[in-house]
Design a protein around this nucleic acid. Sequence first.
DNA 1: TACCAGGTAAAAA
DNA 2: TTTTTACATGGT
Length: 301
Amino acid sequence: MSAAAAVAPLRFGVSEPYDLALSLRAAASFAHGRVDPAATTEEVLRSPVRIAGVATLLEVREAATEPPALEAVARPAASPEAVEALARRLVNADLDLLPFYERAYDHPLLGPLTSSLRGLKAFRPATLFQMLVMAATEQQISLVAAYHIYGRLVERFGEPVDGLMVFPRSQALAEASLEELRECGLSQRKAEYIGGLAQLVSSGNLDLEALDSLPDDEVRAQIMAIRGFGLWSADYLLIRGLGRPDVVPEGDLGIQTLLGRLLGDGGRLTPEGVHRVLEPLAPYRGVAVFYLLAGTRLGLV
DNA sequence: TACCAGGTAAAAA
DNA sequence: TTTTTACATGGT
């Protein structure tokens, strides 16, 4: 089959409710107009990914609303099983929002917000490696500064597909010199962290994808054993990379500030304060934080 | 200009 | 054992 041949879209159901267009708008609002792991248009998730080692453009769009279904197309074509698995992961298809909405119903802020944002889910990145590199890049500096650095890494070491860049292979970052990594704007330390992580992954000594089947605490233990990755990075991976719905990095400055403004006295909360104000939303505290962030970005709170 | 921003490891006390 | 420090970029 030639690359130009028509590719049949692959259709799959997602848990109800789901609003892809709303999720795309929320994702775009987080990007500060800069790099986004998933490039978006109005209605279609266009994601540069690697499937069986091949740089591929994966497009996901809405196919039906009741019950919600999506369709995915990969170019070049790939095995339907791999395409569906990756598409389901990108859109967080298996997350069930209804128990979260039930929990949030009585909450003064999240009650109205979950009704405005019904069907919203966070996208997940294609790989956990990519997520950890993002985490290390974002450590301590502003998100805007981190996005610039991250963009340079992807531009320099990634692989083009249809005008977008697939995130670099671990091998590419493992082979990069510390100086090359620093030229992207990383500190010496972070260059070491990311280079070290890339070597662990590319050598086969660390199987990040195997973390998916482990409980939260075992994932934390494995991540925190890697130099440069502490509790914050482990929690960041759990909520954003693995979609574990109850995880919140309580030491996160951005979350402390956000929750202080929305649920506290206006000032930044302590980690204990973050824990206290989110307690009523367990076991969906991480999802709740995402809704508060999205609500802020979209001008709803 | 100086300071802070979605941390972390290593040095110093 | 606990506290302090260095780190790189970008916005204010």
